[in-house]
Design a protein around this nucleic acid. Structure first.
Lengths: 135, 135
DNA sequence: CTCCGTGCAAACGATTTGCACTATG
DNA sequence: CATAGTGCAAATCGTTTGCACGGAG
């Protein structure tokens, strides 16, 4: 069960990091196709799963339908725009948030937590303001 | 656009509350079918959406593929078992967690946040221990 | 009697999988 | 050369939708 660094795996990882965004599989597929036109979407899915399993990228299973993958594998929280669905990274918010304590109350053994702050990103705030002006 | 309280809507709401669990649409469908065999899955989906829109139940869009619906519509956080995928309610953890502040740093206007603590529930801890003993 | 809600089946979007083939280590 | 990884198409899973009919207010 060893990990081979194939051409496609390398490109997928590289393009995700290069993007500096939180891409969904199909978005990354579109980007990677420009470099390697015969790659299949299934390969992108498979590799994103493997790479996040190996801790080389992050996997975001938050807010709705599509999984998104994070070029930054280190631990941090996320903020999510309800209008355009973009995600940005946040320094960890939880200083003083003791998830373990809260888990203990209900008998869980806590392995981690996910925090997602929800709001409207600067760009979408601007767009909304403009729309209001014009209507 | 007023809300009618149909038979199926009433049963769906009632069975979700009675379950005291965080059910997915198809799980609730199986339960409701026992009371009303001709109900369709689409109706369950539609009503869960409407009921959560009306604030009568909660909608959970966390951790993985399926949406789950919460018999308790009040604001609270959740804890999630990675083994059996059950969800339990938590008193809000965020005392002193100022989501607004963190959003402001990156220019977002914050409308809320979602916190999901991840771990292993008491039942699954027990099962794992037993398995270890037997192997 | 008006329309919101329903059941059914088909459509849908995201993801996964079986298969024969390819290429990495 | 063994076997992990690939491309392709079909399958699957959760969810949504179009439509004609039914029932709540």
């Amino acid at each position: 069960m060893q990990l081979r660094m194939t051409n496609q795996r390398e490109i997928i990882l590289h393009e995700l990091i290069k993007s500096q965004r939180h891409l969904a599989a199909d978005e990354l597929y579109d980007i990677v196709k420009k470099v390697m036109p015969r790659i299949s979407l299934a390969t992108v899915y498979r590799n994103l799963e493997i790479l996040s399993g190996a801790g080389m990228i992050g996997k975001l299973e938050i807010s709705g339908r599509q999984k998104r993958f994070d070029y930054d594998a280190s631990e941090h929280d996320h903020i999510y725009c309800v209008v355009c669905h973009r995600i940005d990274n946040l320094e960890m918010v939880h200083k003083g948030l003791s998830a373990e304590e809260f888990g203990a109350v209900v008998g869980y053994s806590v392995t981690g937590y996910r925090l997602e702050i929800v709001g409207v990103c600067p760009e979408c705030q601007e767009k909304t303001e403009n729309k209001e002006k014009c209507s």
